[in-house]
Design a protein around this nucleic acid. Structure first.
Lengths: 242, 242
DNA sequence: CAATTATTAAAGGTCAGACCTTTATTGACT
DNA sequence: AGTCAATAAAGGTCTGACCTTTAATAATTG
């Protein structure tokens, strides 16, 4: 008797509505960009109060599934969750779990070589063109350390994007963003010999990507990251938290 | 003149309150498990209405930072976001971005060898004991395919947990959970020769982990996953979406 | 006529207060 | 002691008013 009735648990109205809207958005029934009815109309249509409608919309907003704007012409529009949402939740996870800075390094070292491998296998001509263009910008040695670091980020991002694996790309973006926050972008790119070495290894990695040699791309990227870790690790105390 | 006034943007009351509570929880000022004041009290204390308090709590709930229960003795208690939260958001991301099933396989293949390497370096005696215990259960060949699959999941989870990298562990859990949903756990563990092969490679991986040989552990795990991919890939249409 | 400025309307944001539902505790009655 | 009813404490919901933000429109003016 008891077991028959467990699990019925009256769902909260806002959750029920949020579930429906979420499914609609994820399946595409509610097209991205096409505004939802306003809150009062949703309340009338769904038979729940406006307060509950608002809670449902708030759930979806936090999940990255709608964007809400005030004022005339505002409202809630469906939006597919992207890398920014992933970054937010990975940030919360790392802060909440007190994840070590070293764990971020390990994560990046785990995935970026694979991203390089996939880039070698899946890159398009446009990818190669963009990579070549970014690589060319490295030749200018007159730029400051900040600009150089940004170029470096752009280079890695371009490689990563060429992999065509959206999930790994999203994770990579989140992790490297957290890393850059933690290091304050204070990377060792002021030393001329470091710049020369980075330029050379970047060239070799691109070479492998261009030739479609996934193994070489992965191997070289792994070594490149090991060198980076060797540079950065001594500066960060072992128990640094993000 | 214009530029002086941009960015002031009156924050919503619920967001301000949520931000404060979030910081309190993440910094530990609001201890996990110690219940927050009830909604009416929070409203009085913060000077905003109960509706706004509720919205703030709802934000935090979706972020996995509080758990809320109804009824007497209920209320909202702080809670540090864990792997379950990460899994929810990775699930939303994969569905929203229409991530291919193959991308999940690639992600797992990217991180699990590194997890095995870290396990070899960081495993404790307890980890080894648990792994040995799980390995022993594999010797019993009479179990059904479902039980065998569960054992297999347990084995991989135990390896992964031994790595002591909470971020990679969280990502691994999320990805493998999504994979199992997509495949419906219909894995090829009914064939005796597959079972023998899996048992053997598991043994060799554990061997490397026990010896602290990270390279071997990573290499063997990578091969093991390649074999798994080779088994599973033909069954899944290339454009299968999660 | 064109540029600016006021007005209005449409939406979300907030509030107050009542009432409902769920759940744990307490107490009364076997 | 065990069961069942009453109570209390919390979240959940509803209503309806009002405030604030923002875009569109109308009025004004150089």
């Amino acid at each position: 008797m008891r077991s028959l009735l467990t699990g019925v648990q009256a769902q909260k109205a806002s959750n029920v509505l949020a579930d429906r809207l979420r499914e609609g958005i994820l399946t595409g029934a509610l097209a991205e960009g096409a505004p939802l009815p306003n809150e009062r109309a949703l309340a009338d249509m769904s038979g729940v109060s406006r307060a509950s409608v608002r809670e449902a919309l708030r759930l979806l907003e936090v999940e990255g599934l709608v964007r809400t704007r005030s004022g005339r012409g505002g409202g809630s529009v469906p939006h597919l969750p992207g890398a920014d949402m992933l970054e937010r939740s990975i940030r919360l996870f790392t802060r909440g779990q007190r994840v070590r800075f070293g764990a971020l390094l390990e994560t990046r070292s785990a995935i970026e070589p694979q991203l390089a491998r996939l880039a070698a296998l899946n890159r398009t001509e446009e990818d190669l063109a963009r990579l070549a263009q970014i690589q060319a910008r490295f030749e200018d040695d007159s730029v400051g350390v900040s600009a150089w670091t940004h170029m470096n980020v752009d280079w890695h991002l371009a490689v990563v994007v060429a992999s065509r694996n959206e999930l790994l790309i999203g994770i990579w973006k989140a992790v490297s963003s957290l890393m850059h926050e933690a290091t304050g972008l204070e990377e060792p790119y002021n030393l001329p010999e470091v710049r020369v070495a980075v330029r050379r290894v970047h060239r070799r990695i691109l070479d492998a990507i261009q030739k479609g040699d996934g193994e070489a791309a992965a191997r070289r990227m792994a070594r490149h990251l090991d060198a980076y870790v060797a540079h950065i690790k001594p500066q960060a105390p072992p128990d640094l938290e993000v």
